[in-house]
Computed example of a mutant assay.
Amino acid sequence: MTDDLLTTQRNMLALIQSGLAFTKDPFDRDRYQKLQAFLLQQMALNPRLNAAQLKTALAQDPGYVTPKVDVRAFIVKERQVLLVQDVPTQTWALPGGYADVGYSPRENVQREVREETGLAVRVRGLLHIFDTAQRPDIPQVAQFYKLVFDCEPLDGHFEPNMEVDRIGYFDLAALPPLSLNRTTPEQLATLTQLHRTQAFSSTD
């Protein structure tokens, strides 16, 4: 299955979801639902998509479909970057996750870091925004805008929790197995360069 086909399927899924949100005609609603079911069956044939990603597609928020927002923290100590190990997959990523309604971007990343690592952090600024649609080699059903913030740890300590088994600081030359849907080596290299030049943008 080509990357172009996955992009087309993702766009079609968004159009169907938006149609379901706005249509008033019961016959159109039935057609949209049948199209959605057929499209998801076709997407399930892609061996590079997992069940969790298809579940994400089914759980799209009602209303006009827009990219989702993911917030991540870039924390460096002695030239090593902090990563967290995901409980279900045992892979590693920058601490973070979905942005919740009711919080500013700064508050969202502070909340995520506290929940996953036990650390309180000071947000120094926005480092970079990644668009997952620009990485067709890493297929995802939904499109995410990944906001990565440069953060400085203040206090706190880690305890294993439902989301994270372990945390650790790693050199870019000796990374553990990464959760590529969340964090890639290329992203870490870009962020490291921006961190060194202190190329921060202000944020709420």
Rank of each mutant, 00 (worst) to 15 (best):
M1R: 10
T2H: 04
L6T: 01
T8H: 11
M12C: 02
M12Q: 14
L15Y: 07
L15N: 10
I16C: 05
T23P: 03
D25V: 07
F27Y: 13
R29L: 03
R31P: 04
R31I: 12
Y32M: 06
Q33C: 05
Q33E: 15
L35Q: 11
L35V: 00
F38T: 10
Q41A: 10
Q41G: 12
Q41K: 12
P47R: 09
R48A: 04
L49P: 01
N50K: 02
A51V: 06
A51E: 15
A52Q: 14
Q53R: 04
Q53L: 00
L54F: 00
L54T: 02
K55D: 08
L58D: 11
Q60G: 04
P62C: 08
Y64W: 14
P67R: 10
P67S: 07
V69K: 12
D70N: 08
V71G: 08
R72S: 12
F74Q: 00
I75W: 00
V76S: 14
K77F: 01
R79L: 13
L83F: 02
Q85E: 12
D86A: 11
V87I: 15
Q90L: 09
W92P: 03
P95C: 10
G96Y: 01
G96R: 05
Y98A: 11
D100P: 06
V101F: 15
S104E: 06
E107R: 04
N108A: 08
V109S: 01
R111K: 05
G118D: 00
L119T: 03
A120P: 01
V123I: 06
V123L: 12
G125K: 08
L126D: 02
L126S: 07
L127Y: 05
L127V: 08
H128K: 13
Q134D: 15
Q134S: 14
R135G: 06
I138C: 06
I138A: 00
P139M: 04
F144H: 13
F144S: 09
Y145M: 05
L147P: 09
V148N: 00
C151Q: 01
C151H: 05
E152F: 00
L154I: 12
D155V: 08
P160T: 05
P160E: 10
V164A: 00
I167Q: 06
Y169D: 04
S179L: 13
S179E: 14
N181C: 08
R182F: 14
R182T: 06
T183Q: 03
Q187K: 01
T197G: 02
A199G: 04
T203H: 09
